[in-house]
């Protein structure tokens, strides 16, 4: 596949995050050039959650960092509410950061072990602060309560006194207290146990509704992505394979890679049956990606053209975008567009 092309972008006033032709390249440990993200474009409307999914090495975390300008991408443009953030430097960029926040994967590592919870959460307000001390304290207290922590005991404690799930709540509070427009969530529930993961996912949904957030949600777990996203972007080896609304994508994937991913999910249901291995082989090295379609080395539908010509993203079916020469149209045109009935 190849994720070049912009056919899937929407012309609309309420696009809050517009990522175009994002490219991230860096020099790896052995001095080789790593093509982490190659020409990726996507957008997110106000109040929408865009799920970014793919296996390790697909570049989804690099996309998150590039949007955050930590560090800025090699090339490409990132518009947040109409402002080109890649053009901002130094203090101009820092002043803009309250609009764009991030929640991290590792709940322990993302909190400074030596600072108190109230200082961790208040930090953003102090940096951008036009608020008085009293106002900051009230805001911090309110947000602590909203993320489900005890506002009487939690503020004066330090991160190691909390469990992983609670630390993730603190992380969420730190981002939300700034009232951001766009929140990038980089695998925020991957490090948590199942029982806690559901709590945090529900909390993120609550926060999204309450603050009208636009979210980019990154995960490797497709079920998590499906649950939280309105629109899903599937990535492979630094490129986009498929973009579609969440339910439609999972009901009938167009790209062979998307289908393979979905078939690999272990469903907690003994009646579901086990598929034969959907994909063979391993991910090629991102420093030496295959020619043409990057998925061709593992694709069951590969043809000659796939190695010669890189497929552009195109609208293969109404509202369905895929970067593939041979999309699985027979599945998508089937009437059952809604959801797989099983529950």
């Amino acid at each position: 596949m190849a994720g070049s092309g912009t056919a899937h972008l929407r012309a609309s006033d309420d696009v809050v995050l517009d990522v175009r032709n994002l490219t991230v390249e860096y020099v790896g440990r052995r001095g080789e050039r790593v093509f982490a993200v190659s020409d990726v474009s996507f957008d997110a409307r106000r109040g929408e959650t865009v799920g970014l999914v793919g296996e390790s090495g697909c570049g989804k975390s690099s996309v998150a960092k590039a949007i955050m300008q930590l560090p800025p991408p090699t090339s490409g443009s990132v518009l947040v509410d109409g402002v080109e953030v890649t053009a901002l430097k130094g203090s101009a960029l820092r002043r803009r950061r309250d609009k764009l926040q991030m929640i991290f994967q590792d709940p322990i590592s993302s909190l400074n072990p030596l600072r108190r919870v109230k200082d961790i959460i208040a930090e953003g307000l102090r940096i951008h602060g036009e608020l008085s001390k009293g106002e900051i304290e009230t805001r911090v207290r309110t947000i602590i309560e909203r993320v489900g922590l005890d506002p009487d005991t939690a503020p004066d404690r330090r991160p190691h006194e909390f469990s992983g799930g609670q630390c993730q709540r603190i992380s969420i509070a730190r981002a939300m207290v700034l009232d951001p427009q766009v929140v990038i969530c980089d695998e925020p529930v991957s490090a948590l146990d199942v029982s806690v993961q559901a709590q945090i996912m529900n909390l993120l949904e609550e926060m999204k509704a309450r603050y009208e957030l636009t979210m980019v949600f990154i995960a490797h777990d497709l079920a998590v992505i499906k649950n939280l996203s309105d629109r899903v972007v599937v990535m492979y080896l630094g490129k986009i394979c498929e973009v579609a609304d969440s339910d439609a994508l999972f009901a009938a994937p167009l790209h062979p890679y998307t289908r393979a991913l979905i078939q690999s999910i272990p469903e907690p249901d003994p009646e579901a049956g086990i598929q034969e291995a959907a994909l063979s082989g391993d991910l090629p090295s991102p420093s030496n990606p295959p020619s043409g379609c990057r998925f061709r080395t593992r694709c069951p539908r590969v043809q000659d053209i796939c190695s010669r010509e890189e497929p552009e993203i195109r609208e293969a079916a109404p509202g369905r975008f895929a970067a593939c020469h041979f999309p699985l149209l027979e599945a998508a045109t089937a009437p059952e567009q809604g959801e797989l009935a099983s529950a």
């Binding site: 029982s195 559901a198 996912m201 529900n202 649950n227």
Partner: peptide
């Protein structure tokens, strides 16, 4: 029961509210 209900499923439509388990182990 609670463990199974807490798992997000592909077969559920998106934005299904998960039945989380309160508290922690």
């Amino acid at each position: 029961r609670a463990l199974i209900d807490a798992i997000p499923r592909i077969s559920h439509p998106s934005h299904t509210r998960l039945a989380s388990i309160p508290g922690r182990p």
